[in-house]
Nucleic acid binder design. Structure first.
Lengths: 205, 205
DNA sequence: TGCTTTATTAAACAGTGTTTAATTATTTTT
DNA sequence: AAAAATAATTAAACACTGTTTAATAAAGCA
């Protein structure tokens, strides 16, 4: 069975090559402006071959999309050592922002780019990787905060959404270049400073 | 000179027709998926004619982009009657969200879609229409709140950015369909509920 | 009327995603 | 080892895209 295995590996290898090439091109020129022919050129194969490994361009997008969530969850692992839920919540915000600033194009892919319409939620669909897991973790953390006496008088589900939105908003406005309206001398630091203000607010809730 | 005037009007008329067609198509199918030929078909002219009125597709995008800000500022006019700055701030949030939910595709155009790279900030560039005015107004309102004793211990510039981001975040996550992670029964109301939580927080600052 | 300018178009160019049929390479069977 | 079957890969085509060009039609003016 070694031969079949090796063939399987070879196939997997080319699939991986396509993904690596697609990722570098997507992040460099954007999804829309990267053509199948560009990817084929990079891996030195004909364009047609790509359709033997992915149904269409969207499927390539999705494969990378999933990879992004794995990558982010990886970074979140350090939160395990943070016992105090409010500290954990704030640390989560820092990690989230850090990930977004270090991988702006991947973040764009994950949270800003329009999700292709034909995104079918089949049985194999792993909600954890697709971001639901991260939100679930945020929800749990906020619930723990509430149990420790925070967020009195608040409805936790919309509050969770608001907290996520605040951080996402700062990051996405920056990524999509809507920050020119901010005072020029503060544009580079506005996200981290905004996060600081956010922490001050959270501490008082 | 009447003839020249009429010609001017006719020209303006076709320009307007192109914009109306482009807008309806952009909002219906998205900018990327609307072709010049689609627009030409809709106005029953040949594709080439469009390049006599707009340099390229981006210029059409920008014309609509600007129109969106005028539209939004229009809605903001009612704020003039709100004397209390904190009430005005909250009302601003409601109007902002209202505009976004009523015109999701226009909002997308204004705040989410990647701004074309070649967006040159020339002397005629009207910062007011381009959104800087709205942010300036938000900044002033928050400053007034501070003068009335709110936001003690906060740095107002990043706080302003944070407040904008919170509202933008909620709206943009919704528009780009990242809300499936929210409890299903609350997805439709999550933005307005999130805004309510936000107001509760603001009231205590 | 003929001449000039303007408005409009048809056609072409170089690019796109995707599908098809043909070709090459590899594995399996005889 | 030769032939048949299967898989991997490609070249070519199709129907699109944004944009530019040169040709045509229309309008205004002399």
């Amino acid at each position: 069975m070694g031969i079949a295995d090796r063939k399987e590996r070879d196939k997997e290898e080319l699939r991986e090559k396509i993904l690596v090439a697609a990722k570098s091109l997507f992040l460099e020129k954007g999804v829309e402006k990267t053509s199948i022919r560009n990817i084929a050129d990079q891996i030195e194969y004909s364009p047609g071959i790509i359709y033997h490994y992915f149904r269409d361009k969207n499927e390539i997008f999705h494969a990378l999309h999933q990879g992004g969530f794995s990558q982010m969850m990886e970074k979140m692992q350090v939160l395990r050592s943070v016992r105090n839920p409010m500290e954990r919540l704030k640390a989560m915000g820092s990690i989230y922002v850090g990930f977004a600033l270090e991988n702006p194009d991947m973040y764009d892919l994950m949270f800003i780019k329009e999700a292709p319409i034909d995104h079918v939620y089949n049985s194999e669909h792993d909600n954890w990787k697709e971001g639901g897991g991260t939100f679930e973790y945020l929800r749990m953390t906020i619930k723990e905060c509430a149990e420790q006496g925070h967020f009195k008088g608040h409805d936790l589900e919309p509050l969770t959404y608001l907290i996520w939105s605040a951080v996402h908003g700062m990051v996405s406005l920056n990524i999509r270049k809507r920050c020119e309206v901010v005072l020029p001398e503060r544009q580079n630091t506005i996200i981290r400073e905004g996060l600081e203000e956010f922490f001050k607010i959270l501490d008082r809730l």
